[in-house]
Computed example of a mutant assay.
Amino acid sequence: MTKFLLSVHVLAAIIAVGPVTVAASMFPAVARRAIAEPDASEHITTLRTLHRICRVYALIGLAVPVFGLATGLSMGVLSDAWLTVSIGLTAAAAGILALLVLPDQAKILADLTTPAPVLDAKSRATLAMFTGVFNLLWAVVTVLMIIRPGSTTGA
C-alpha cells in the first residue's frame, strides 16, 4: 500500500505542481508584453489560459499533500524533521499561490481588460517575486523528498 500511495503522491506532484510552476512563471513575462503592445488581445488570451492553468492545477495539486501525508503515515515518518519541514514549506507554497500569486494574476488580467489599463511596474514585479518564491519552495521540498535526511535507503 505504501508503494501505491508514494506512486500517486509523486505522480500528483509531477502532473499538478509542474504545470502550475511553469504557467505561473510565464505569466509575468506575457503580462509585460501585453502592456507594451497596443493590440494585446493575443497576449490577454494567453494570460487567461495561464491563469486558468494555475487555478485548475492548484486544485488538482491538493492531492499532493493528501497522498504525501498518507504515505508518511504508512511509512511511520510523520514525526521526522525532514517531513515536518517539507509540510511547512508545502503549506507556505500553497499559501503564496492561493493568497498572492492567483489574486495578483486576476488583478493584472482585470486591469488589462479595462479600456485604459493602469498597471504599474511594481505589481508585475511583485507577482514575479511571489512566483519565484513559490517555485523555490517547491524546489526545496523536492530536494528534501529526494535526500530525506536519516533515510534508510542509502540515498
Rank of each mutant, 00 (worst) to 15 (best):
L136I: 13
W82R: 00
V77H: 10
A16G: 14
A94Y: 14
R124G: 06
I35T: 03
G61T: 11
V8K: 05
H51L: 13
A81C: 03
T84F: 05
V133R: 02
H9N: 11
L59T: 15
T114R: 07
M1I: 14
V17I: 15
M145F: 11
I44P: 00
L97H: 04
A121V: 08
V17E: 06
L47Y: 00
V10K: 05
Y57E: 06
L69D: 08
T90R: 04
P28L: 08
M129T: 12
T2C: 09
A93S: 12
A23F: 04
I147Q: 07
I108K: 00
P65W: 05
I15L: 13
A81D: 04
A36F: 01
A31R: 01
Y57L: 11
V133M: 06
L78R: 08
L119N: 02
F27I: 03
I60K: 06
D111P: 00
S86T: 02
D104C: 07
T71I: 09
A128W: 03
T152S: 15
A12W: 08
A23N: 04
P103N: 08
S7R: 04
L136W: 06
V10Q: 07
I53Y: 02
A63K: 06
A29S: 15
V101A: 06
V66E: 00
Y57R: 02
F130Q: 10
W138C: 09
L83A: 04
M26A: 15
V133F: 07
H9P: 08
F4D: 05
R52E: 14
V66G: 02
L109H: 05
D104E: 10
W138V: 06
V20R: 01
A31W: 00
R124A: 12
S25C: 14
L136M: 11
